[in-house]
Simulated assay, not measured.
Amino acid sequence: MVNNGGFILYNSNSKLRVIIICGIFAAITAILAQIEIPIPIVPISGQTLAVGLTATIIGSRYGAIAMICYALLGATGLPVFAGFKGGVQVLIGPTGGYIFGFILAAYVTGLILEKTKFTITMAMIANTIGMIITLAFGATQLKFVLDMTWGQALVTGVYPFIVVGLIKAYLASWLGITVRKRLIQAKLVPQTNKQVA
């Protein structure tokens, strides 16, 4: 038995467990992506909530892998992105930067928790940093794809999402830590000295 990336894995089927775990969280992201508030150019969706939940529950490595799986599923044409969209054109389009940002955001969010403590307070800090990473990636691609100024990119792709992003960061923190505790009780996630009892 080995402890890999936060989850208990058994050598005989560790690869299968990784696939299942990452697939589940990629699917959760695809589902939450369809919860959408349409605003011009960049809609508000549940994707970032899913990213925060994923990283808070399964940590940096698996969180990033789950987001890579999500991006790859969308790239193949499956309608997993916001608004039931899919295809490479979404990734290289104006809003694709956010999706690329999910990968690093999940990794950094999970890493902060792994290096500190799995508490709601630390999860809120980690998820807020993850939100900043996602918005930075999104605004950067938005600027270059639509030939905007940095000011226009911030007004379009960052400012409208700060308040709702903080709300989603809190929800991801509270729900994520709660679910993680339940998984520990079910012996799916090991208790660590940095985990709240």
Rank of each mutant, 00 (worst) to 15 (best):
I19Y: 06
I19Q: 03
I21C: 11
C22K: 05
G23K: 05
I24L: 13
I24A: 09
F25Y: 14
A26N: 10
A26Q: 06
A27I: 14
L32P: 04
L32Q: 02
A33Q: 09
Q34S: 07
I35K: 00
I35D: 00
I35V: 15
I37Q: 04
I39Y: 01
I44Y: 07
I44G: 15
S45R: 05
G46F: 10
G46N: 11
G46A: 11
T48S: 13
T48V: 14
L49N: 01
A50C: 07
V51Q: 07
G52N: 05
G52R: 02
G52Q: 02
L53K: 06
L53E: 04
T54V: 05
T56C: 11
I57F: 03
G59S: 04
R61G: 14
A64W: 02
I65H: 01
A66M: 06
A66D: 05
A66S: 15
M67A: 04
I68S: 02
C69E: 06
C69H: 00
A71K: 03
A71M: 15
L73C: 12
G74S: 10
G74Q: 09
G74C: 07
A75T: 11
A75H: 09
T76Q: 02
T76W: 06
G77K: 09
A82G: 14
A82K: 12
G83Q: 04
G83R: 00
F84A: 14
G87N: 07
G87W: 06
V88A: 13
V88P: 00
Q89G: 14
Q89S: 15
Q89I: 08
V90F: 05
L91P: 01
L91A: 08
I92D: 05
I92M: 11
G93D: 09
P94L: 03
G97H: 07
I99S: 12
I99V: 15
G101H: 08
F102G: 12
I103E: 06
L104G: 03
A105M: 05
A106T: 12
A106H: 11
A106V: 09
V108C: 10
V108S: 09
G110C: 11
L111H: 08
L113N: 11
L113C: 09
E114G: 12
K115A: 09
T116P: 13
T116D: 11
K117Y: 14
K117R: 15
F118R: 12
T119C: 08
I120D: 01
T121R: 14
A123N: 06
M124N: 10
M124C: 14
I125V: 15
A126N: 10
N127S: 06
T128L: 13
G130T: 05
M131C: 03
M131I: 08
I132W: 01
I132A: 15
I132F: 11
A136I: 13
A136F: 14
G138I: 00
G138A: 00
A139D: 04
A139G: 05
A139I: 02
A139E: 06
T140A: 13
Q141N: 02
